[in-house]
Nucleic acid binder design. Structure first.
Length: 487
RNA sequence: GGGCCGUUAGCUCAGGAGGUAGAGCAGCUGCCUUUUAAGCAGCGGGUCGCAGGUUCGAGUCCUGCACGGCUCACCA
């Protein structure tokens, strides 16, 4: 705590002023005041003497002894208050002596314009709403220390306007996404965050435990298998916007909990999904920024459809010098991967090696929106294989700004095939658990369905031009802070 | 987990080659009735991330640790 603030708090208490007022209701936002009276002339304002009350946090005090100018900020904007001490009651004068930058206060008075033409409240009375015990970050340089910004995000959004705007934009993007699905007859659903078997993706799950059920549970790594159960039940179009949890590394593109929108559409295929994805992202861009382009990491990215579709192999051919013929043989592919310093686990499949090569050399080059298609079946355990090529899945991934943004495919709905693939998957694992409940559901019949997941955090990164996922998540995961003492 | 960089006053930052810590803003005391990074004069404020070590002497050099950033690995 800052000593001088404690002294002022005590002063207020001696004056019998409650520094944490029990109730205060405000009818007028600062922005409303400004937009209503901005265009009135000074004389007009003085003649009409509009009485009003504004409230907010004090951001600056410019004191001249007998008068002072105060900058007051609320969620909508800032306004200037003019205080002339001889126009105030004694009690208000004393109160004002103990009000500092950072405190929440309300000022009542009437409007006028200063010499410089700024709309200002001529204060006739003042109320303290909340006394603050800590100094705010410095008014000019603001708050830069990354750690403090992330740990104390309230300060970050309070003093860094661009940060505040980033999170407002995030909220708008999610609203637009939701509206898009609702408008297209999708049903919004919520499926379990705690699952007895973590499925729908390959990633390390977080484990937890239910005492009464005496049962291990996992935080979900994907909602996929539950959403498809709903399609089986007859909800032909479902979507879910929610968190997934993956117990993996943390980086500028990975947070342990991240937000995805995942949706499933019966009677459509993955080409329809690609069209829809183009339309969805364009629609968000237009409603958000009124244009079909965005700037990300100094690249101007045109979103106008159609976006190129490139097979995984062709992408490697186009963006690297790797002889792609060699990617048909696991031994040759292995050699290429080893030369490229790619870690190869035991029993790695040819498809997985190909994907690793793609991720290492191609992914970062896919700045313009690009669909990568024709993924190997063995890295796509939930996708349908092509009719004319059983090694290739009917699947795509969308890349923008060098990041994977979305992943979609035709859903494998052959229960016997799915069972085989699940069992194949766990063959070399210690944990041999297979989601037979999902197989049973498939046996009741999943209509031809295409499904897609889109990473919302990364989408927000694109639309707000932030290169770190921590800049678009309000409270990203950090190590525990050593708080020392109470401070 | 590996590599590189960072951590100094409430905030933003200086502290050449080791000699006992500085500025601006914020705070406090004056002066000041239209300022807006108000101004002028003065004052107070530091476990230099933590713990060791080298040295007569460490913010500065060495080692370990903590936290953060970037990056590689794993992943989306």
């Amino acid at each position: 705590m800052d000593e001088h603030r404690l002294i002022k708090l005590k002063n207020l208490q001696h004056l019998k002023i409650n520094p944490y007022i029990n109730s205060f209701k405000l009818s007028l936002s600062i922005n409303k005041v400004i937009s209503t009276y901005q265009n009135c002339s000074h004389d007009d304002l003085i003649n009409k003497k509009y009485k009003l009350t504004v409230a907010g946090r004090i951001m600056a005090i410019r004191s001249f002894g007998k008068v002072a100018f105060i900058t007051l900020k609320d969620n909508s904007g800032t306004i200037q208050i003019y205080v002339k001490s001889k126009d105030l009651l004694e009690v208000d004068r004393q109160l004002l002596d103990n009000i500092e930058v950072g405190d929440f206060s309300a000022f009542s008075g009437y409007l006028f314009k200063t010499k410089t033409g700024e709309l200002t409240v001529y204060a006739e009375s003042v109320t303290i709403l909340t006394k603050t015990l800590k100094d705010l970050p410095e008014k000019w340089h603001g708050l830069k220390d990354t750690e403090k910004r992330l740990r104390q995000r309230y300060l970050d959004i309070l003093v860094n306007n661009d940060v505040k705007n980033t999170f407002i934009k995030r909220s708008q993007i999610i609203q637009l996404l939701r509206k898009y699905f609702i408008d297209n007859n999708y049903l919004e659903v919520e499926t379990p965050m705690m699952q007895p078997l973590p499925g729908g993706a390959t990633a390390n799950p977080f484990e937890t435990y239910h005492n009464t059920l005496d049962m291990k549970l996992y935080l979900r790594i994907a909602p996929e298998l539950y959403l498809k159960r709903l399609v089986i039940g007859g909800f032909e179009r479902v979507f879910e916007i929610n968190r997934n949890f993956r117990n993996e590394g943390i980086s500028t593109r990975h947070n342990p909990e991240f937000t995805m929108v995942e949706w499933y559409t019966a009677y459509c295929d993955y080409y329809d999904l690609m069209d829809m994805t183009e339309d969805l992202i364009n629609s968000i861009s237009i409603q958000l920024n009124n244009k079909r382009e965005l700037i990300f990491n100094e690249n101007t990215i045109d979103l106008t459809p159609p976006w190129p579709k490139l097979s995984l192999i062709d992408a490697i051919k186009t963006y690297t010098d790797i002889p792609v013929e060699d990617l048909h043989s696991i031994d040759k592919a292995r050699i290429i991967a080893e030369h490229s310093k790619i870690d190869l686990e035991e029993n790695i499949s040819l498809g997985k090696i190909t994907v690793k090569i793609f991720e290492k050399f191609v992914e970062e080059k896919l700045i313009k929106p690009t669909f990568i298609i024709d993924y190997p079946k063995d890295v796509s355990p939930l996708s349908k294989a092509k009719e004319n090529n059983k090694d290739i899945a009917e699947r795509f991934e969308l890349y923008i700004g060098g990041m994977e943004i979305a992943n979609g495919f035709n859903e494998l709905n052959d229960p016997l095939e799915q069972k085989m693939r699940f069992e194949e998957q766990v063959k070399n694992k210690e944990d041999k658990e297979v989601d037979y409940d999902y197989i049973r559901a498939l046996e009741y019949g999943l209509p031809p369905t295409a499904g897609e997941g889109l990473g919302i955090d990364r989408l927000v990164m694109l639309f707000t031009n932030r290169s770190s996922i921590r800049d678009v998540i309000l409270f990203p995961q950090l190590k525990k802070e050593d708080m020392g003492y109470s401070d």
